[in-house]
């Protein structure tokens, strides 16, 4: 475990906590894409199939449980909670899951490290995580009025990926046998998707203005 990896995990954890806190205390999920949240639940489910078979560390197992638990509770809040679900704007959040899920599945079946169920699912989760933010970014662009917590949530998610890249660079030099190009490409694509958002996030921060994405 290096400092970049730990910082990446922590920003990832904070992003989820910020979102849960927003939903739980304000009882609102305005501006949050259910599609993205459902895709994350799918990402964690398919990635952590090894949670009960391969023990890596207590830290690893606990974090996996947190990410699984939080992603499913966020989906539950938006779909089922009697107050929260009223703030969900279904008409704006129209991105189709299968546009992302099917290509990622096909890609994972053909391009993977080893053709086993667990390995294909793990690869699928990497591809899907890379693009799972798209419905959320589309929603941000549509609603334009982005509240602080939603902006911070997306910023923390992007920061997590950027820190993971630094972690891989570090690991590349310290443990060369670990490097795998599938992880790199998926991770870089995922981080690039945030580039536009980051640009406007820093602009609004610098000018002390409310975050707004151009139409």
């Amino acid at each position: 475990m290096n400092i970049f990896r730990l910082a990446g995990d922590m920003t990832h954890l904070f992003s989820v906590l910020v979102l849960l806190l927003k939903i739980h205390t304000i009882k609102s999920c305005a501006g949050i894409s259910l599609k993205t949240q459902e895709l994350y639940a799918l990402v964690f489910t398919t990635r952590y199939l090894d949670i009960f078979t391969d023990f890596i560390s207590l830290y690893n197992t606990v974090m996996k449980l947190i990410f699984l638990g939080s992603s499913f509770s966020i989906v539950w809040y938006i779909r089922r909670h009697k107050i929260v679900r009223r703030s969900y704007d279904k008409d704006q959040d129209t991105f189709r899951h299968y546009f992302l899920v099917i290509p990622c599945l096909v890609l994972a079946v053909f391009i993977n490290h080893k053709f086993t169920f667990k390995e294909v699912m793990w690869t699928f989760s990497l591809y899907l995580e890379a693009v799972a933010i798209l419905p959320q970014l589309v929603l941000l662009q549509r609603t334009r009025n982005i509240d602080n917590l939603t902006g911070q949530y997306v910023f923390l998610l992007g920061a997590y990926r950027a820190l993971y890249i630094l972690n891989w660079i570090y690991r590349h030099f310290t443990e060369p046998h670990y490097v795998h190009w599938i992880t790199w490409i998926a991770g870089v694509v995922q981080t690039l998707l945030y580039a536009d958002f980051f640009y406007y996030y820093f602009q609004s921060w610098k000018n002390n203005e409310k975050l707004q994405l151009p139409a």
Binding site: H113, W122, L126, R171, H177, H180, I182
Partner: peptide
């Protein structure tokens, strides 16, 4: 270890 990178990551 012949594990691909990332299996110990989250």
């Amino acid at each position: 270890k012949d594990q691909p990178q990332g299996h110990d990551e989250l």
